[in-house]
Design a protein around this nucleic acid. Structure first.
Length: 112
RNA sequence: AGAGCCGGCCAGACAGUCGCUGUGCCUUUAGGCAUGGAGGAAAGUCCGGGCUUCACAGGGCAGGGUGCCAGGUAACGCCUGGGGGGUUGCGGCGGAAGCUGCAAUUUACGGAAAGUGCCACAGAAAACACACCGCCGAUGGCCCGUCAGGGCACAGGCAAGGGUGAAAAGGUGCGGUAAGAGCGCACCGCGUGUCUGGCAACAGGCAUGGCAGGGCAAACCCCACCUGAAGCAAGGCCAAAUAGGGAUGCCAUGACGCGGCCCGCGUUGCAUCCGGGUAGGCUGCUAGAGGCGGCUGGCGACAGCCGUCCCAGAUGAAUGACUGUCCACGACAAAACCCGGCUUAUCGGCCGGCUCUCACU
């Protein structure tokens, strides 16, 4: 079923207001590497927050972002229709690819 | 073949599957097909431009920057070529001081006879130079001696030697002298003048002065030259919802408040239009001091001409994920308006040039 595992623009949070809305719900869960905030919505959407505080190097931040995107893309159809904001925490900067994936999958599992 | 230096280039490769994003086309509002999609430093933001808005008659000051000369460039604090100085090594000349050839390396390299300031420790003295040890004591003084002469080191002379220091009024040698001193002379160094060569920095020759004067200007400062400010979150355009502003019209010619009443003033309804402007969107946004190849000019940086190519354009922010195979097992690190430099980070590999060593013909 092609298309069901895509990640078009409509499936992403696009503005500061949308991010603020999710954070203001104060609903979240997390582990050592990530924290996921969520809020009710009509569709499943993703937002990412990987700040300079996680790592000053753009390369490292990009690597984390891409793992989040890919991980979300694969599980999105199984998730409840909500807006999610994945917040990276500083230890994520030194984690390996598989560690990042495992940590994310663990959190998605809890949210389904 | 190996080592060193310099310059240029590459930055795991290939295949499959699933994604993201720019453009074009087809179908249609969701897709399909084709094609493009991080760097040599994209980085640090240290300089220089373009572009944009604001400011601006002209001149000056302050502030900031640059600092041997010439050239290159849009411009530069960059680059190229040249000059001077320093350091090191190997030589040459000379009795020495010193001079000089080659190679490597280094240099913020205008001014210290405009002024101010600083120069620890050591040392007698650190700048109108000085006199601790020392040398002399010719001259004057004292003493001894019949004379010849000798002694003392009081006045005084000296700055050669010792010692201190990063640095002590140029160095070497000869003469000279009581001892000494550019006091005299030769050579070297330095200053001044002049001539020659060079666009110039500067170099060389000749003459001349016995010799001016410590260092620090990446201390203040002086001189010459340059310099308006802020940055794409610049700037331009479109523009909801809500609140508020302005204009016009309409209705009762109303209602409420101030007031004893009239006039008056304030508040209040509906519709249309206008301008400002927030969220948001569009633009700026990538064809350019552009890449590649060739020819010509130039020692070179670079320039001119011709041909050819189009080579990221995101915006809560794409350029990725997974699997397999192979190898020299993959570093530093990712655009955010665009260029030119500088600086810093970096696993490896390829190509060219020069020098040295070894081997072979």
């Amino acid at each position: 079923m092609p298309g069901t595992r895509g990640l078009p623009k409509s499936a992403r949070l696009r503005s500061g207001a949308e991010f603020r809305h999710v954070f203001d719900q104060r609903q979240s869960c997390g582990n050592a590497l990530f924290r996921i905030h969520y809020a009710p919505s009509s569709t499943v959407r993703l937002g990412m927050a990987v700040s300079r505080r996680v790592s000053p190097k753009a390369v490292v931040r990009n690597r984390i972002r891409r793992q989040i995107r890919e991980s979300f893309r694969l599980v999105a159809p199984d998730l409840a229709t909500r807006d999610y904001v994945v917040l990276a925490r500083p230890p994520a900067a030194s984690a390996s690819r598989t560690e990042l994936r495992d940590a994310l999958n663990q959190l998605w599992q809890r949210l389904t």
